[in-house]
């Protein structure tokens, strides 16, 4: 029987937390890139593309992330490709993130007054120029606080990757709880580590939000 000190538990959890952070970053950056592409396509005023993307968003927001993970994990294997939990988790979280971010950002673009589009169109700017020089810079300012806030959602979402066997913080917590027989302590520590990752991000999002609305009070 090996004895585990609190430090042993914490050290191993912190090592596993690296993977939580890596997975969050991959999903956030990948999801941001896909989300941006979807946003631009959506703003291109193509009816079919628009309704397709609306459907995409509805599917990812209307189904459990856990199911999306399972579907990708088993779905990729169906094509005869050998999947690792790592690939499936990255892919599922990227798609999930992209659906949410494209919806958040569309709201921000909609918040830019219509006249801005019309004014830039009357200056003979192309669609791409209108977007990159006039609309997106203004939308970006509004978009930062909710985007940072959504990062918390992504970090918490990575916990579900433990279910398909990806060893991140939650999975490591389960494994350590099984060998130490101290589930209360271990899951308490796991929750605390998630909290120390997420709480500063939440606070920062709140600060950004207040800064943005400082003129309206």
């Amino acid at each position: 029987m090996v004895d585990f000190t609190l430090w042993d538990i914490l050290r191993n959890l912190l090592l596993a937390a690296r993977w939580t952070i890596v997975l969050s970053l991959v999903a956030f950056v990948g999801g941001g890139a896909v989300g941006l592409v979807l946003l631009v396509v959506r703003l291109g005023r193509n009816r079919i593309a628009e309704s397709l993307i609306a459907g995409y968003v509805q599917v990812f927001q209307g189904t459990p992330l856990l199911m999306q993970l399972f579907l990708l994990y088993f779905g990729i294997a169906l094509f005869g490709i050998d999947t690792s939990p790592w690939v499936a988790a990255c892919l599922a979280l990227t798609l999930y993130t992209s659906a949410y971010l494209t919806e958040i950002w569309r709201g921000c673009v909609d918040a830019v007054p219509r006249g801005q589009w019309e004014a830039s169109a009357s200056l003979a700017l192309s669609f791409g120029q209108q977007l990159s020089h006039v609309v997106l810079p203004q939308a970006l300012k509004i978009a930062v606080p909710p985007t940072v806030g959504f990062l918390v959602q992504v970090v918490k979402g990575t916990a579900l990757a433990s279910v398909i066997g990806f060893v991140e913080l939650t999975k490591a917590g389960g494994m350590i709880a099984n060998v130490t027989y101290e589930p209360l302590l271990v899951y308490g520590c796991v929750a605390l580590i998630y909290f120390t990752i997420c709480f500063p991000i939440s606070l920062y999002a709140g600060v950004l939000e207040r800064k943005l609305h400082v003129g309206q009070r």
């Binding site: 918490k156 579900l160 279910v163 709880a177 899951y187």
Partner: peptide, 18 residues
């Protein structure tokens, strides 16, 4: 709000019996 639901669930189900 700053911890995942799955961890809350595991804490309640696996942790509280201890």
């Amino acid at each position: 709000r700053n911890t995942p639901f799955i961890v809350q669930l595991f804490f309640v189900f696996f942790g509280l019996p201890a």
